[in-house]
């Protein structure tokens, strides 16, 4: 198998579960060493990192900090820098969701959405991109959401915070290009995760039927796209938004 990320060193936030956890495995499978972030230190995550490391013969560094704690973010960057590996990729995957109609959206929750989904990756990217600048190369992949583009009901807070992340990515793709750093956005549609599993079946049925491909996305679909964007196969791609949603947008346009 061709390893697309051989000898690359990649940081991923939010790897305790779902898409981030899948990314750790797929990145490792493709030959990358991974700094795997989670908010809370726990044995399950540590064990997972050890298993992936042994299975694929790469280095997995579990790192734990709360993205809302800016001083903890700084300490984490110092730790990453201390490992003395050139940083080739960053995936800002960690995020939180929130569903509420506009008139029922709590302002504190709105702030919380922006804090986690926008301010935290903004700051973290400021720090990590400086490490990339030294090496004159790097790839930043920000996980936004189809909600940032589609304006779904009940997603005004979440969607706006993810739209902010999307726009930031487009801006930095131009600013950091001179330093050899690329930046792209992935907008997942509805992805089968633990969170989706808690939804009523009729809701997921509607979402499944709303896609061209007639199925929900998987964490592997998102991780595969991230692998491509982190790899040298996408070396001429920057400032782009990738919808990974099974074609749901086109379906909507025809209604």
């Amino acid at each position: 198998m061709n390893k697309l990320l051989e000898n690359k060193n990649i940081i991923v936030t939010g790897t305790a579960r779902g898409m981030g956890k899948q990314m750790v495995e797929l990145f490792a499978q493709n030959g990358a060493n991974v700094f795997a972030h989670a908010r809370t230190e726990n044995d399950e995550h540590k064990l997972y990192c050890q298993e992936i490391s042994s299975l694929y013969g790469v280095r997995i560094f579990p790192i734990y900090f709360d993205l809302k704690d800016f001083s903890a973010v700084k300490d984490a960057v110092k730790m990453i820098r201390g490992v003395k590996l050139p940083i080739d990729g960053l995936v800002n995957n960690a995020g939180i969701t929130y569903n509420a109609l506009f008139q029922m959206t709590d302002i504190e929750e709105l702030r919380n959405q922006f804090e986690v989904n926008f301010f935290a990756p903004y700051l973290f990217t400021q720090y990590i991109s400086k490490l990339m600048i030294r090496n004159r190369k790097g790839s930043i992949v920000n996980i936004s959401s189809s909600a940032a583009l589609d304006g779904n009901s009940g997603k005004s807070a979440y969607g706006a915070s993810k739209a902010a992340l999307l726009t930031m990515t487009l801006c930095i793709s131009e600013e950091l290009a001179a330093a050899g750093i690329r930046a792209n956005v992935i907008c997942p549609g509805v992805i089968e995760t633990d969170m989706i599993a808690t939804m009523p079946e009729y809701v997921t049925d509607i979402q499944r039927e709303a896609t061209f491909l007639g199925k929900l996305g998987t964490t592997v679909d998102i991780a595969n796209t991230a692998v491509f964007l982190l790899s040298d196969y996408s070396s001429y791609i920057t400032g782009q938004v990738f919808r990974v949603d099974g074609g749901v947008t086109e379906y909507k346009k025809r209604q």
Partner: peptide
């Protein structure tokens, strides 16, 4: 310029093993 400034900051941070505040 702004790009050179990024390079300068990266060089200073590496030389002195610091992280400069914004």
């Amino acid at each position: 310029d702004s790009v050179g400034h990024m390079n300068l900051v990266a060089n200073i941070e590496e030389a002195f093993d610091i992280m400069m505040d914004t």
